[in-house]
């Protein structure tokens, strides 16, 4: 029995960050997860995202939900197949005080943070800067605002560099670790 089984975490985006964060939280025994993604698995995702060739063409939210339930059959999953917009973000995450931001587009990341942080009960753990093959040691967790943690190197952009599994998973690991720390009552990054 995990000390996290009555804890709830929302994950916005199920690409390289979100899929790996979800797996780590499921393995850690977090009891309730919200998965939000509208996209389908593509071949080009398989180098870093938690999907297999048999998942290509399927909704990421569904393919990931199946795997998470194999990891922890007792997991309570809520799945929303929707593109997150300024219009629906507040409603989608209304019941979820702890949110992992794992979107790929920089403006979408900013939009989600700007929208959700107006809710004074929300804490967000975000990912920014994990492209390329730069030093693994450049990726860190920082508490940038009272209720915003940012994981990544804050610099390497997928627009300039390819995305590779190691730094994406390192960043996902930072986010998942910060989530577990927050759930344990520790606010320091």
């Amino acid at each position: 029995m995990s000390c996290y089984q009555d804890k709830a975490v929302a994950i916005a985006g199920l690409g390289g960050l979100g899929s790996n964060i979800a797996v780590m939280l499921a393995r850690s025994g977090v009891g309730k997860l919200l998965l939000v993604d509208y996209d389908r698995v593509e071949h080009s995702n398989l180098n870093r995202q938690y999907y297999l060739p048999c998942h290509v063409g399927r909704l990421k939210a569904e393919a990931l939900a199946e795997q998470l339930l194999q990891i922890n059959p007792a997991l309570q999953l809520t799945v929303r197949v929707e593109k997150i917009t300024v219009g629906n973000a507040a409603e989608l995450f209304a019941q979820w005080p702890l949110v992992c931001e794992a979107l790929d587009d920089a403006a979408a990341k900013a939009m989600l943070i700007n929208t959700l942080l107006t809710d004074k009960k929300k804490i967000i753990v975000s990912g920014s800067g994990m492209a390329g093959l730069g030093s693994a040691n450049a990726i860190y967790t920082a508490r940038k605002m009272a209720r915003l943690y940012v994981c990544g190197d804050e610099h390497s952009d997928m627009g300039q560099e390819n995305m590779w599994a190691p730094r994406v998973q390192i960043c996902a690991g930072h986010q998942a670790n910060m989530v577990l720390r927050l759930l344990a009552g520790w606010q320091e990054p």
């Binding site: 587009d105 990341k109 990912g127 804050e154 997928m158 627009g159």
Partner: peptide, 10 residues
């Protein structure tokens, strides 16, 4: 003021 500037990738 705290300014966070996001880069792409997820």
């Amino acid at each position: 003021l705290e300014i966070v500037s996001f880069v792409g990738g997820g």
